[in-house]
């Protein structure tokens, strides 16, 4: 067993503790607003649909809950030629929707 192995063994308990603290903090925060991600997705899709026809299948949502910051990822496959229609106005609109709905997405507290 390598030296690294010793450290890994010593720390698996603390890794567990950190993982639990993080995920429980998120789950407690999210329980007040269930389906936040679902709603965000629906509303953002609606906003985009006003400007460009997008199929719901072509929207991929990812979420990575982090310690200080969580990242909500939206991967949207736009039909050919649609990109030209997108301008700063649309980008701003999206940000507005996200801000209204969830406050700052992924506000997490590091449990004491």
């Amino acid at each position: 067993m390598s030296i690294l192995g010793i450290f890994q063994k010593r720390n698996s308990g603390s890794v567990a503790r950190d993982r639990l603290q993080l995920i429980l903090a998120h789950e407690r925060a999210e329980s007040g607003r269930p389906d936040l991600v679902l709603q965000l997705r629906e509303e953002i899709l609606a906003v985009i649909a006003n400007h460009v026809a997008v199929e719901p299948d072509k929207v991929k949502v990812t979420l990575e809950r982090g310690e200080a910051v969580s990242t909500l990822g939206l991967d949207i496959e736009l039909p050919l030629g649609a990109a030209a229609k997108l301008d700063a106005k649309l980008a701003a609109k999206l940000a507005e929707v996200a801000a209204n709905k969830g406050g700052r997405p992924g506000s997490s507290k590091k449990a004491a």
Partner: peptide
Amino acid sequence: AERRVVYDLINVVNGDAK
């Protein structure tokens, strides 16, 4: 994968997500 869960089995059954 606990930090990356977006949709679950019930979402798929209900049609909320593919």
